[in-house]
Each structure stands twice: as C-alpha cells, then as structure tokens.
Design a protein around this nucleic acid. Structure first.
Lengths: 250, 250
DNA sequence: CCCTCCGCTATTGTATACATAACGCATACA
DNA sequence: TGTATGCGTTATGTATACAATAGCGGAGGG
C-alpha cells in the first residue's frame, strides 16, 4: 500500500479524536451506528492504535457507548437526557458560583467577567441582533461561563463541569444556538444577561446562596427554552448537536 | 522469554485497569510518581496495548494525570480537593433526590431503599458498634446511595455521580471509613441515618426541595467530619484512599 | 570549576501482524 | 418450509516491532 501521509504537528491520537468527534457531531455517523475501527482508520488517517485510544476517550467523554460484545457505537440521546444534562451543568455552575462567593474573589479576578458582561451589553443594544453579533455573543457567553467556573478555584469541580459540557448540547454555546431558533430569542438573551449581572453582583457581595440560585435559574431558563425550540423544529439545523438525538422519541 | 501466563476469563484491558487501580489506591504507587508503561506491563501481566487503554481510562477516572511530554503520573490531591469532591457528590445526589421526588417514584421502587434503612437501623442498635457491623454498614450505606441515585432515572446524572464517586475518598464508603476514626463516630452514623430517613420521606411525599436539601446537608456533615478526622491522623490508615493526598500541603 | 553541547539511553507514540471471538449465511435434516 | 448447526468471513482484542523524542550524563571548552 502507498505510504501513509502523516501530519507530525499533532499526535495521531488527538488527530483521530478530533476527526471522529467531527464525524459524530456533523451527523456523518448516526446515533446507534456502530463505529468500525477499520473505517475510522481510513477516514482519520491514523492507524489502529491511536484510533482505539481516541475511541476510548470519546467513550469517556460520553459521545460513544461501548458495545458489550466489543467495539463502540455512537450514543443516542433522548430529549430528557439533553434537558437533564443542561440542568446538571446549571447545578454544577451554581456550586461554582457559590464557591466563588464564599471563598472570596478579588476585584482583579472579576475584571474579565465584567468585560464579558459589558461586551455582551454592547451586542444586545442592537435590535434585532445581527448574525455576526449573535456569533460573537455565543463566544462571549462561553467565555463568561468558563471564567465563572474558574473562579470556584476548585479543580475537581472545574473538571466535572468540563465533563458535563462535553456533550455539545449541554455546552453554553450549544443551547444558546438552540434557543436562537425561537421568536423570543432576543428577549431570552436579555434575561440571560440579567442573570449574568446578578451572579457577578452576588459573588462581589459574597452572597453564596444568591449566586448559586441565579445560576440554577439560568439553567432552568435554558431547559424551558430548549423544550420550546424542540417543538418548532424549524431552524434546528442550526444546532449540529441535534444529530445526537434519538430519532425514535421515547 | 518465557511464555506469558494469560487469564482468559476477563479482558486484559480490564485486568490491567483493576491491577493498576489497586496499586494506586494501596499506595504502591505514590502521588506524583510517574507510571512507566513497561513497569506496568510487568506488574499487570498484560501487554502494552491493553495497559495503555487502562491508563487512558484511569486518567479519565481522575486517578492519573497526563504528563505533557508524554506518559502519566499518579494524581495528587489536596485536602481541599477532597472536601470539594465530597460536596460535589452531595450536590449531585441532591439533584438526584430532587429528580426522584419531582418525577415520582412508586412504592415498589422505594422498597429496596427502605430495606437498607431498616438493616442499618438494626446495625446501629448496637452500642458501640462492632467491627463486623461497621463493615456491613459501609456496604449497606453504599447500596443506599447507589439506589437513590438510580431513582433519579436520569442516565446523564447517574453517569456524573458515578464519575464523582470514582475518587475513593469521594465515594460513600470512603468518607464513612474516614469518619470512623472519630470518637463521635457512632453519633455521626445516627445523624446520617436520620438524613437517609428524611430523604426517603421527602421523595415519598414528592417534596423535591426538601429531598435535595437533606442530601446536601448529608454531604456537608461528611465534609465537616472528614476535616475533623484529618486533624487526628491517628487511625487514618483505615482509609487507603489517603494514599492519594499530597504530602506537602498547599 | 562551571557551563554548554552532543550523544546515548530509556520511554513513549505509532504501526502492524497475529489470535480469537462473533455474526451471518448456507446447507442439511426434520 | 423452517430450524439448527457448522463453517467462513470480518471485526475486535492482543502482542510486539519500529520510530521518534525527551531527559540525562559525560566530555570538552571557556
């Protein structure tokens, strides 16, 4: 066989993992479908060992499921799984906000959060929001959540939140995109921004319970809106993660 | 070289994973120590491929940490990491209890929980509790927590709780054992049992908030007691997981 | 005497060959 | 005609050979 083209800039394992994740999230591999190692070797360009490592990592990430008789299949998610994942992340972020508030955060550390807040305020001034601005919003929102998580200064918690966000529909960007299909999108973003404002205020004033409560409400809002969005399936092709939803609703 | 002795009853990957986990939790491998693949091959009896798969899984489990330049080392935990992990699990179990309460649970499903409760009541009648009884308590308590988690009927949440319990000191059995070193051990077990009783009652009566609150209090109690136990380091060899604590406190 | 550079060694990353188990198909018998 | 059994094919599980890199030690020069 012709010699393999090898990209030496990143490890083969990482390359395979990224490629496979792409295939899953883009819908090229459908939920429930078995992933053939040989096929993965061909599509990713890595050999079987790194492909297998990538498969194990993707299983731990939650995108794949081990088949008892051997091998892996693409995991399928119910609508309930998705809303639970969002609420789960909200709960963890609530704990992170509480930790941040109770343990104290310097003004210096809150600065990046406030910058995000101001930048989002700026974006939301547009009515209706442009496509470009919306895209910036997705980025800024993700950064806000990541920085808030960091403020907990709790490696175990940060780790769990990262894990909970691995499922794309449970990531901050994921459900924002889902909500964008709704007619009330702009109003939703404004409410969400209010949550952001409150959580910063609560952390500044060391009100742990309030900081936690608002993050949980933030997630519950997301869950409600995701449910709405799943009713009008019109623009949902915006959300690639939807490729993971079980076709047969249970 | 002499032919390798192969145990064909379980996969080599699983065998290696169990063996390595044992080595880590028994303290044979110290925190911060690099794990050599070759050495692991010798001690586990598996070859490099399954050993590598096991290492990846243990990393995802949180027992190992990837070294940037390659390979893995045993993760080291601070005291704060440990108490955060317990509080984290308590928060997740709180959510599980809430889900169970809000979504409704049949009397049939609560039966196993009540059996655990009664069995623990029986054990606690002994004053002071015997070593054997304490060992039964550890098992029953772990079962209680596992069954409660199941009642949430939320696969993503169950998965996260399992992950959060992977760290041995964050598992139900782990911190019970740590607490056993305290002079107030018996009193603590009685309070914990009261929590168990309340959460069942709350779930039965569909009081989600109360069910959640008591599980969080349950965890906070554990955190307080673990702190106490770490002060009197006398009997802490009871808790193998302590092998994971950073020697240099930071 | 110390610092730097080169080369060696040890360990990980990758590829592939081999073993084994599962699935499917075909054929034969009831 | 249907079912069961056996064989073949294909996939995964395992082992090992090869490649590349990082870390360490020694030697040489400043």
């Amino acid at each position: 066989m012709a010699e393999r083209e090898v990209d030496r800039s990143v490890s083969q394992t990482v390359k395979a993992q990224l490629a496979l994740r792409d295939q899953i999230l883009s819908g090229a591999l459908r939920p429930g479908e078995r992933i053939s190692e040989l096929q993965a070797v061909e599509t990713t360009g890595a050999s079987r060992t790194p492909v297998r490592m990538a498969l194990v990592r993707l299983e731990e990430e939650g995108l794949l499921e081990a088949i008892p008789s051997g091998g892996f299949m693409v995991k399928a998610f119910s609508e309930r799984d998705i809303s639970d994942s969002i609420e789960l992340r909200g709960t963890l972020e609530g704990l992170a906000a509480r930790f941040a508030a109770e343990r104290g955060v310097s003004a210096r550390e809150l600065e990046p959060l406030k910058e995000c807040l101001a930048a989002i305020d700026e974006l939301l001034r547009q009515v209706p929001i442009s496509v470009d601005a919306f895209s910036s919003y997705v980025t800024l929102n993700a950064r806000f959540h990541a920085q808030l998580t960091e403020l907990s200064r709790s490696p175990p918690l940060i780790r769990q939140i990262d894990r909970a966000s691995a499922l794309p529909f449970a990531s901050p960007s994921g459900f924002v995109m889902a909500q964008s299909a709704l007619p009330e999108a702009q109003q939703i973003l404004i409410i969400a921004q209010e949550h952001h404002r409150v959580v910063i205020d609560a952390i500044e004033n060391r009100e742990g319970a309030r900081a936690e409560a608002v993050m949980r409400e933030h997630a519950r809002l997301a869950v409600r809106n995701l449910r709405l969005a799943l009713r009008n399936r019109t623009h949902l092709d915006l959300l690639p993660a939807l490729a993971l939803i079980k076709t047969a609703t249970d």
